[in-house]
Amino acid sequence: MTQQALEYLLYRVRSFKLHGVHSPFVFNLYNQVILHNGAFYAYPRVEAVREDLLLDNRTIEVTDLGAGSNTIKYKNRKISDISRTSLKPAKYSQLLFRLVNYYQPKYVFELGTSLGITTAYLAEAARKAHVYTFEGCPNIAKEAKKNFDYLHLRNITQISGNLDETLKLQLEQIPQLDFAFFDGNHRYEPTMYYFEQCLAKAHEKSVFVIDDIYWSSEMKRVWQEIKKHPQVGQTIDLYFVGLVFFRTSQPKEHFTLAF
């Protein structure tokens, strides 16, 4: 059994379903949003773009500023290969859609655009929101822009460059950060640095989503540190992503829920 398979097995043992949730806030979120299995108008629109990307054999040069891919190590990559290894599966992309649809944030940050599938879901879920998406590779950012234009999404602002430099500058331009998806770097120190920066603009109702919390030992360490952070109130471990809340109206609690 691989380490990843063992981690997932342990998660399944730890996790529980709706009947085991005693927090009304988490109970409602789990029932109405996380486990929601109905259809939304955006799903087929965005998934059609994903299908096209998976069949796109054009090659682009990729600049990796983060931890990179676990499976693809060469610079010139097919769009189809990037799509297959880097895009969030529909199950989790659509969870992001439902979270944004439920909370209707005004200011949304996505740290790591890739080809823009999750960005599209975020923008579709709250058409009046300002969605800022950060991407280190200019060639990937160009491909994502084509997808946004195809879907007629006008509420997305793309920011290209090194996240170490661009994140702080953009945070200074917004009054608050309502929703953030962290998928820009899968190493401990950069991820914690970005998290701390974003905390400066977080508030009681902010929602942060941390991607790939079991991807590596460094990301597992990130998740444990976030859970212990004094500004963090509640967390929900869904294995592939972790949800972070800052509600001071209820006790600090951590949940591992089946998803």
Results as ranks from 00 to 15, higher is better:
101 N>E: 14
170 Q>T: 14
137 C>N: 15
140 I>H: 03
28 N>M: 01
115 L>Y: 12
126 A>M: 09
237 D>P: 09
8 Y>Q: 10
184 G>P: 04
122 L>R: 02
117 I>W: 10
235 T>N: 09
185 N>E: 06
221 R>T: 03
225 E>A: 15
104 Q>T: 08
169 L>I: 10
29 L>V: 03
177 L>R: 04
185 N>Q: 06
137 C>W: 05
116 G>R: 05
98 R>G: 03
240 F>E: 14
137 C>D: 14
118 T>N: 12
118 T>K: 04
192 M>V: 08
47 E>I: 02
30 Y>M: 11
158 Q>N: 07
122 L>Y: 05
180 A>Y: 07
135 E>L: 07
157 T>S: 13
6 L>F: 00
217 S>K: 06
195 F>A: 11
222 V>R: 01
91 K>P: 11
259 F>H: 08
192 M>A: 08
93 S>H: 15
167 L>Q: 13
151 L>F: 02
188 Y>R: 00
206 S>Q: 00
23 S>C: 10
92 Y>D: 13
109 F>S: 01
86 S>H: 12
53 L>Q: 06
241 V>S: 01
160 S>W: 05
201 K>P: 15
78 K>C: 13
247 R>Q: 06
58 R>K: 07
197 Q>S: 12
244 V>G: 07
24 P>M: 02
136 G>L: 00
204 E>T: 13
8 Y>N: 02
79 I>R: 04
111 L>P: 06
217 S>F: 02
195 F>V: 08
57 N>K: 08
221 R>I: 04
138 P>F: 15
101 N>G: 13
190 P>I: 00
59 T>Q: 00
202 A>K: 14
108 V>Y: 14
186 H>S: 09
178 D>S: 11
223 W>K: 02
166 T>L: 06
114 S>T: 10
71 T>S: 12
23 S>F: 01
240 F>Y: 14
150 Y>D: 02
45 R>F: 04
204 E>R: 07
167 L>N: 13
59 T>N: 09
2 T>K: 08
63 T>Q: 07
152 H>D: 06
235 T>Y: 02
230 P>Y: 11
63 T>M: 11
107 Y>I: 13
213 I>A: 03
186 H>N: 01
155 N>R: 05
229 H>S: 08
135 E>Q: 12
207 V>Y: 07
145 K>E: 10
44 P>K: 03
81 D>E: 15
255 F>H: 08
133 T>L: 00
49 V>D: 00
86 S>W: 12
205 K>Q: 08
